[in-house]
Design a protein around this nucleic acid. Structure first.
Length: 551
RNA sequence: GGCCCCGUAGCUCAGCGGUUAGAGCAGACGACUCAUAAUCGUUUGGUCCUCGGUUCGAAUCCGAGCGGGGCUACCA
């Protein structure tokens, strides 16, 4: 809010490239997209908004999986990274860049960062001792080892106590500063439950963390996969450390350096520790500014069970495609953005709830309201009517109502409260519906022949309805860019630089676009086209959309 | 074991010391017919998990307990 003049830089995690994309990835990325689109609209043309997502590629399993498929790690990673990019295209994600950690632009930066930390003594060589699972070729944590009575959780074979040389990051040195930064909200961790979680764990003390792996570890590869430790080719940078740097490496160029620090990192709760503790500490070691905030959401559940690949109950890109085919991808985005596990608690994804929300908010709400208004305008006036300067009728002060809705949305966006931000637009739609019932323009239209006052009054009422819906549509745009752009085309009121491209920029900042009677308002006499319903009503009795059998 | 979060209408949740506890959805009744059998209004519905305590006053603060979830460091 007060940072309007600063660049807005928002990130999602970079996704583990060995896996297939699913609803969880889509959720985080859609929310980031909604926030990014809102910021672009808020700031208007020339907006400094940068939205980053990407893939995390240097895991050992990428090497072994690639080998089992007869591919090089780079080929395998490339194939899967493309699957993520395709998934995000389907979801209408408007990221400004897509970082892959196997790209040279990233690896070169990581090497430089590590070198700098070696020079400063923040990274040092030491001994790592832990419980090693020979079958899995990996270390298990002390806790996990104890719980499994020092046997492999996978094979049941006894674990070996092993010691190896490793490079460590001096995390312990940053404990006090980190605690202070989080406590004072200079590094804002949201929601509060997660902030407490981090602070609670910080009081237990921090140990230095290993940041390297011996090159021989993991699947035995020909060429080392990842970034080698500067000056010590026997070691590689541990994949997690490598991955975290993406947020910085991508913008650490002459053209983009001013974007740092990031405004918001969005993550799911599983990777809280890395982002709330290790990442900011590493940035301090590098002498870089910390991101402004970290938002940690919970999980989407499928019914009672946690969504996971092993349970096979995660929503796939194909299933999402089936939803999009029937309801439009915008409706799917709306559901994610308004019903998702924002906050600390998990949320359910169910078909029944999807239909309920779709019908209530979109078909019966936004879609129907635009239809009835478009229809009456077309039927009674043929083009946008002239309100003749009237702004208030029947106790509805529209400039005030729309202004308040915009403020409410802007305020919610500042708090990263995405659902409230969008509901501000929907509440305007509801207000229009109520206004129509109170003022009964359709009844007024019947007296237009006999009553000389009826015509002007009808014109004013319908203009208010249409103009209020236009403002509402701006607030709904971040979640539903294509449907809203469609409405703007029908009403000849697109604020986009290219009305046919929902991703093109905005010609002015939101405050100007949303101004009642301003330069971008509906103009009397301009064409208003009704068109087909924006959202066809869904039949709850219809079975859930699924992947259609081939053919 | 330790720490944290949650437990409020049938459902999803807001409220986090102060008048008769709210919203959306679902239900019932009524109104209306411009619209996608849509919309609008009214309304039903709650021991605010339990038991204690603090207070003039608690869903809201404190203690204990019950139920659900999370974290406990290198595991997307």
């Amino acid at each position: 809010m007060s940072d309007d003049h600063r660049p807005y830089y928002i990130t999602t995690p970079i996704y583990y490239v060995n896996g297939r994309p699913h609803l969880g990835h889509g959720y985080t990325t859609v929310i980031a997209d909604v926030l990014a689109r809102f910021q672009r609209m808020l700031r208007g043309s020339g907006a400094e908004v940068f939205f980053l997502t990407g893939t995390d590629e240097h895991a050992d399993k990428v090497v072994s999986t690639a080998a089992s498929r007869g591919m090089t790690p780079q080929e395998w990673a490339g194939q899967n990274a493309e699957a993520f990019e395709a998934f995000f295209r389907d979801l209408r994600i408007s990221n400004d860049d897509f970082i892959r950690t196997s790209q040279d632009r990233h690896k070169a930066k990581v090497e430089a960062y590590i070198r700098s930390m070696l020079d400063s003594g923040d990274i040092y060589k030491g001994d790592y001792t832990g419980w090693y699972d020979p079958g899995q070729e990996e270390y298990v944590t002390e806790t996990a080892a104890r719980e499994n009575e020092y046997k492999s959780p996978v094979s049941g074979e006894p674990l070996e106590k092993r010691t190896e040389q490793n490079y460590f990051f001096r995390l312990s040195a940053y404990q006090d500063r980190l605690e202070e930064l989080i406590r004072s909200e200079q590094y804002l961790v949201l929601p509060e439950a997660r902030r407490n979680e981090v602070l609670g764990r910080l009081t237990q003390g921090l140990r230095d963390v290993p940041v390297s792996r011996a090159v021989g570890d993991g699947a035995s590869g020909q060429e080392p996969w990842g970034v080698l430790m500067p000056g010590d080719p026997e070691h590689r940078i541990y994949v997690w450390i490598d991955a975290l740097f993406n947020y910085l490496s991508t913008v650490d160029t002459d053209e983009r350096r001013h974007l740092w620090p990031a405004s918001v990192h969005l993550i799911a709760k599983d990777i809280l520790w890395f982002h709330a503790v290790i990442w900011p500490a590493m940035l301090m070691a590098l002498g870089r500014e910390l991101p402004r905030s970290l938002y940690v959401h919970a999980y989407f559940m499928m019914g009672e069970r946690k969504m996971s690949k092993s349970l096979g109950n995660f929503v796939t890109p194909e299933e999402i495609h089936a939803y999009a085919d029937r309801y439009g991808i915008d409706a799917f985005r709306w559901y994610l953005a308004t019903q998702g596990p924002w906050g600390a608690n998990d949320a359910d994804f169910t078909y029944a709830k999807f239909v309920e929300v779709y019908n209530a908010d979109l078909a019966n709400g936004f879609g129907n309201s635009t239809s009835r208004v478009s229809n009456m305008v077309a039927k009674y006036f043929e083009s946008c009517p002239d309100p003749a300067g009237q702004t208030e009728l029947e106790g509805h002060d529209w400039p005030k109502l729309t202004g308040e809705a915009v403020c409410s949305a802007v305020d919610a966006s500042g708090r990263l409260d995405v659902a409230s931000m969008l509901k501000a637009g929907l509440s305007l739609v509801r207000a229009v519906d109520g206004y129509i019932n109170t003022t009964e323009p359709f009844r007024l239209a019947k007296t237009i022949e006999s009553d000389p006052h009826a015509g002007p009054r009808l014109a004013a009422i319908l203009y208010h309805c249409a103009e209020a819906l236009r403002v509402a549509s701006l607030l709904l745009y971040p979640a539903m860019p294509d449907k809203v752009a469609e409405l703007w085309r029908r009403w000849r009121c697109s604020p986009l630089t290219d009305a046919n491209n929902a991703d093109s920029g905005f010609v002015a900042p939101l405050a100007e676009l949303a101004a009642w009677g301003g330069a971008h308002s509906l103009k009397p006499g301009q064409h208003i086209e009704k068109g087909e319903p924006l959202f066809m009503r869904a039949d709850p009795a219809e079975p859930e959309p699924g992947v259609k059998p081939a053919g």
